[in-house]
């Protein structure tokens, strides 16, 4: 009995952490564009980058209940850092990526002290305000950031010193996908660790967690910093693969977009954000290709439609449907066991 209670939660976590066949299928499917849509690899690379960014938001919003309307701040810090490193003569992508992650992580850690103290609307407005402040600061510091015109002169060296970034986006997609996968595996581990469990506790009831001896604030600071690092990596990927950074990397629009992608896919499920990013980016590309002027109308309808019929996002809706099917299947055979 006692051994069971001790090993119980660990066993649950371990069971959750096991890789499922469907997950492996998912990741194999991400390779399909190479074969089936080689003309769309540039888009695919930006989808992967968006997915990484959404994953970062999912860690704080979906798993820890920290809502943010200013998450682009960390994306932008990463993007500008990677860009600046390159402009100042060091265009090696992998080390640039690491430096960018560290920079956005530092900014995340510093701001996390403020973030951890607030919730709800106050938190939304504080993240929004901090994001807008940073964007204005970047506009003012045009000697450093290039201001409105964007940072000029970014040049990314070939990957591993050998593989050039081509016009077709082969390198860009491979690179972005690899980083996404590695970060995803790490995020998955975090979620299925006791720390991850504590985060969900904070999401469900932030006031009760300290009562059972969990330090809410320090947990929030930790996950917020981790999320900031990931957002920074996404930003760095974008500036390295496109060799451009401008103020909109820090902007409200990007913060709002990533929030929309996450809710669309389903927050609090690792794959929800990824699905949301794919659906939103592909839909946007297709709608705007078909109707460059009024595509907002269709994307708006898409959002309304999804939220009307799948209030927990696409993945949430699918999971609900699957559960219903399974429950129906369970009911049908007569119960023989005692």
């Amino acid at each position: 009995m006692t051994t069971q209670t001790i090993s119980g939660p660990h066993a649950v976590l371990q069971a959750q952490a096991r890789w499922r066949a469907a997950e492996i299928a998912f990741w194999l499917a991400t390779l399909l564009p190479f074969v089936l849509a080689p003309d769309y690899l540039v888009l695919a690379s930006q989808v992967a980058i968006a997915a990484l960014f959404v994953l970062s938001l999912d860690l704080i919003l979906g798993f820890s209940g920290i809502i943010s309307l200013g998450h682009a701040a960390y994306f932008g810090v990463g993007a500008y850092t990677a860009g600046l490193v390159s402009v100042h003569g060091w265009g090696e992508p992998l080390s640039g990526l690491v430096i960018a992650g560290i920079a956005s992580g530092i900014w995340g850690y510093v701001t996390s002290f403020i973030i951890a103290r607030f919730r709800h609307l106050a938190l939304i407005m504080i993240t929004l305000g901090l994001g807008l402040l940073l964007q204005e600061a970047a506009n003012a510091a045009s000697w450093l950031t290039g201001g409105f015109d964007g940072l000029q002169g970014i040049h990314t060296w070939p990957l591993f010193g050998k593989i050039d970034f081509d016009l077709y986006g082969y390198t860009a997609y491979s690179y972005a996908l690899a980083v996404l996968f590695v970060v995803f595996v790490a995020a998955r581990r975090i979620i299925h660790s006791p720390f991850g469990l504590a985060l969900r506790g904070i999401r469900e009831n932030g006031a009760r967690m300290p009562a059972i001896g969990a330090s809410t604030h320090s947990h929030i600071r930790t996950i917020y910093t981790i999320a900031a690092v990931i957002a920074g990596l996404a930003g760095a990927l974008l500036s390295q693969t496109t060799e451009t950074v401008s103020l909109e990397a820090l902007g409200f629009q990007r913060s709002a977009d990533v929030l929309v992608m996450l809710i669309l896919g389903g927050a609090g499920r690792l794959y929800g954000g990824l699905i949301g990013a794919v659906v939103y980016m592909v839909a946007r590309d297709q709608f705007s290709g078909l109707n460059p002027q009024f595509w907002y109308f269709w994307i708006g309808l898409l959002l309304i439609g999804v939220v009307m019929f799948l209030p927990n996002g696409i993945l949430g809706g699918l999971a609900f449907a699957a559960e219903r099917l399974k429950a129906a299947a369970r009911k049908r055979p007569p119960v023989s066991a005692p």
């Binding site: 929030l259 929309v260 809710i263 994307i299 708006g300 309304i304």
Partner: peptide
């Protein structure tokens, strides 16, 4: 009215969708 008890995330998504539609409609 369907979303009063749905939590803030679906509300955000719904109303952002309406903003997008209204912008496109006004432009049209």
């Amino acid at each position: 009215r369907r979303f009063y008890h749905a939590g803030e995330l679906p509300q955000c998504l719904l109303t952002i969708g309406i903003v997008f539609v209204s912008i496109a409609a006004a432009a049209y």
